[in-house]
Amino acid sequence: MEHDSTREGYDTVAETYAARFRDELAGKPLDRALLASLIEQTAPGTPVADLGCGPGHVAAWMGERGAKTVGIDLSAAMVSAGRREYPDVEFREGDLLALPAADGEFGSAIAFYSIIHLAPSELPRAFAEVHRTLRPSGLFLVAFHVGTHVRHLDEWWGHEVSIDFQFFEPAHVADLLEAAGFKVEMRMERVHHSDEVETRRAYLLAHRIL
C-alpha cells in the first residue's frame, strides 16, 4: 500500500471528515465505555496517544474526561483541522511505522480504524512502534474491520481519492500483538451501526508485558 496516496486522500477529505465525525461518539456507547475504561486504567498524568487520530474528535472526548491526549496522524490537513477545533489536544504529524514520540512516552494508546491503511506485512513494525512508545504495562486498544480483503475507494464524498482499506482477522492481529510484546486482555466484535459502513468491527485490548 502507498502511504502517500493515503495521506493525500485524507488531506483531500479532511474538512468534510471533521464535520461528519465531530459527534461520532454520541451514537457509540460501546466505544465510549471502552475509552472510559482505558482512561481509568491509565496512570494519572501520563499521556494517552490517539494513533491515526484524524481531526481529533476521539482525543478531544478523552481529554474532556481527564486524559492528557496526544493525537498523531499521517495527514497534515487532519492535524491542522484538529489543532483548530481542539486546542487542548496536542497534535503531531506522523506515520504509524515511525511514531513521533519518545520511548515509553505514553501511558496508553488507541488506534481506531488506522491500522486498516497498513499492508499486512507492515503490522509487526507498527505494533513494535506502539510497544516502544508505551510505558511498561501500558494499554493499547485497537479497532478495525473484520475480514481478509481490501476495499478501495476512488471517490469519497465527491472527492477524487485513491485509498485502500485493509480488513484483518482478530486472531491474526492478536497473534501479531503478542509477538510484539503485548498480552491481549480482551477481544470483542460487533456489527455495524445503522449509519456506519456495513462491516463487522473488532476491538482488541492489550497491555505491554516486555
Rank of each mutant, 00 (worst) to 15 (best):
E2W: 05
E2H: 11
R7G: 03
R7E: 14
R7M: 08
E8L: 13
G9R: 14
Y10N: 10
D11R: 02
D11C: 06
V13T: 13
E15A: 15
T16K: 15
Y17D: 10
A19F: 03
R22V: 00
R22N: 01
D23L: 02
D23R: 07
L25P: 07
P29W: 01
R32E: 07
A33R: 11
L35K: 03
L35A: 07
A36D: 15
S37F: 05
I39T: 13
Q41E: 11
Q41S: 12
T42N: 07
P44A: 08
T46C: 14
T46V: 13
T46I: 09
P47C: 02
P47R: 05
V48C: 09
A49F: 05
D50S: 07
G52M: 09
G52P: 10
G54I: 01
G56Y: 01
A59M: 04
A60K: 02
A60H: 14
A60C: 06
W61C: 10
M62T: 05
G63C: 10
G63N: 07
G63H: 02
G66S: 04
A67W: 00
T69L: 11
G71W: 04
I72W: 06
A76S: 15
R84S: 08
E85M: 15
E85G: 06
Y86Q: 04
P87Q: 01
V89S: 06
F91T: 11
G94P: 12
L97S: 07
L99T: 03
L99P: 13
L99V: 04
A102H: 05
A102M: 05
E105G: 13
E105Q: 14
H117D: 15
L118C: 05
L118P: 09
P120T: 09
S121G: 06
E122T: 11
E122P: 13
L123Q: 01
R125P: 00
A126P: 02
F127D: 01
A128E: 13
V130G: 09
H131R: 12
H131I: 02
T133G: 12
P136K: 00
P136C: 00
G138F: 02
L139M: 05
G147N: 13
T148G: 15
T148M: 01
H152F: 11
H152I: 08
D154S: 14
D154W: 10
E155W: 08
W157Y: 13
H159Q: 14
V161H: 12
S162H: 04
D164R: 13
F165Y: 14
A174S: 15
D175S: 13
L177I: 07
G181N: 06
K183Y: 03
E185T: 04
M188C: 05
V191S: 05
V191H: 02
V191W: 00
H192S: 09
S194D: 15
E196Y: 01
E196M: 01
T199D: 12
T199K: 09
A206D: 01
L210I: 13
L210V: 10
